[in-house]
Design a protein around this nucleic acid. Structure first.
Lengths: 231, 231
DNA sequence: ATCTGTGAATTTCTTCACAGCA
DNA sequence: TGCTGTGAAGAAATTCACAGAT
């Protein structure tokens, strides 16, 4: 019990969260015909520090060449495999309002391993509409459809008031990964992952820092750290 | 230089990122007419552990009462003030495609301290349209408008290819907080904050865990940790 | 008796700095 | 020489566990 914080092939969460960023930067390099990158260059493109990048990649294996760098195509392949992008993940979107519409039409879905297979809504004025080539189904059809199409990821794009109910139905239908756009906390049983995308949280975090900057400007750029805020 | 990692009234980033979640949970409690909560209850509502909640709140001050809990209204006020929500933050959205539309119409904006004051796009087929009560302006008007309306936060909802250019224009117009929905890294000078909201990153993180779960199911729920993955 | 606020312990994440390979 | 991979140091975040206020 000395120092082995990580199960064999266990990749730290912080690293997993950055792999998509590296992947995107690498894809952009590949598109420009670049075959090889140093950790320094890739780190810059990804907006991180190079030591961090190297440590992150070292969790996947020794895929670099000392004195040279990383092979772009090869790394794309390895990261994609690690993230599970070699297979297709069927996605269902629940809640076809403004946001649901935008999500259904989002090209980023189709591109890399994700395929929107079903759209649901409770609102009968929306049900039956064809959005991004798919007919919107009544939410009640979810359970039935989950048998046919194996839905891997459920996207909750409903108002907060319905989100927990929708989430419960998704889980009951066998979905174990949920992406939540509703501004609320979802509770799920063990073994189900939820990730949240939250516009107003992000705005509030920006507002916090913006306020700090405003105060700092008033005080003036004098006293380096001791900025005692009077009110 | 013993143990004081944080400047006076410096609130850890991790705490700042959770304050909006607490605020929302508290608002929900207030709406239900609940006047007081324990850290345990609020933590559950916010989906965090109670020790973490207490430590987070302790960074704002001693606003709880031992043996009793926290006054809901009072905490709402304190957190709102800390996040800078007592003032209005003018927001501009650039890129009025599917997503920009959804964002402009998002009620969450107006509710809590944020006010959308301008919409921009380069596409002449969109410019002039009225979205959510605002006329879409050509991007070229940004510089001129920044003088009139003090834009505090710029939302980038353009394709990745245009995002850096748009961001540069926002910064040039004096914007120091950017919320980026484009799937790319933005580089900005010191003193400008960028936060990213990224659908496909979140999907890929979910896919990673989903893949793990699939493998674990194949292996079976035997050997607790040593799960050597053979292929 | 109850529940907050917080030192101390622990875990996780980041960064440094350099050994070692091409 | 140039750049990766990684121990070791450092910083940050989390969690424990309990003193102390009500």
């Amino acid at each position: 019990m000395t120092h082995d914080p990580v199960t064999p092939r266990g990749i730290p969460d912080a690293t997993v969260a950055r792999l998509p960023v590296y992947l995107r930067a690498l894809s952009a390099l590949a598109d420009r015909g670049i075959a090889s990158v140093s950790s320094e260059e890739l780190a810059t493109a990804a907006g991180v520090n190079s030591a961090k990048l190297r440590k992150d990649l070292s969790h996947l294996g020794s895929y670099g060449v000392r004195g040279v760098g990383y092979d772009v195509e090869f790394l794309v392949h390895q990261i994609g495999r690690e993230l599970g992008l070699t297979q297709d993940w069927p996605v269902a979107i629940v809640g076809i309002g403004n946001l649901g519409h935008a999500l259904a039409g989002y090209a980023g879905f189709a591109s890399k391993g994700f395929r929107v297979v079903a759209l649901f809504d409770v609102d009968s004025t929306v049900v039956g509409d064809v959005v991004a080539g798919l007919r919107v189904r009544p939410l009640a059809d979810l359970a039935a459809l989950a048998g046919t199409e194996q839905i891997a990821i459920g996207v909750v794009a409903t108002p907060a008031a319905n989100a927990q109910d929708v989430c419960d139905r998704l889980v009951a239908a066998g979905v174990r990964s949920v992406l939540n756009f509703a501004p609320c906390v979802l509770s799920v049983p063990d073994g189900v992952d939820v990730r949240k995308v939250d516009l107003s949280t992000e705005l509030q975090i920006l507002a916090f820092h913006e306020q700090r900057k405003a105060v700092r400007d008033l005080v003036g750029p004098l006293d380096e750290l001791g900025a005692r805020v009077a009110r």
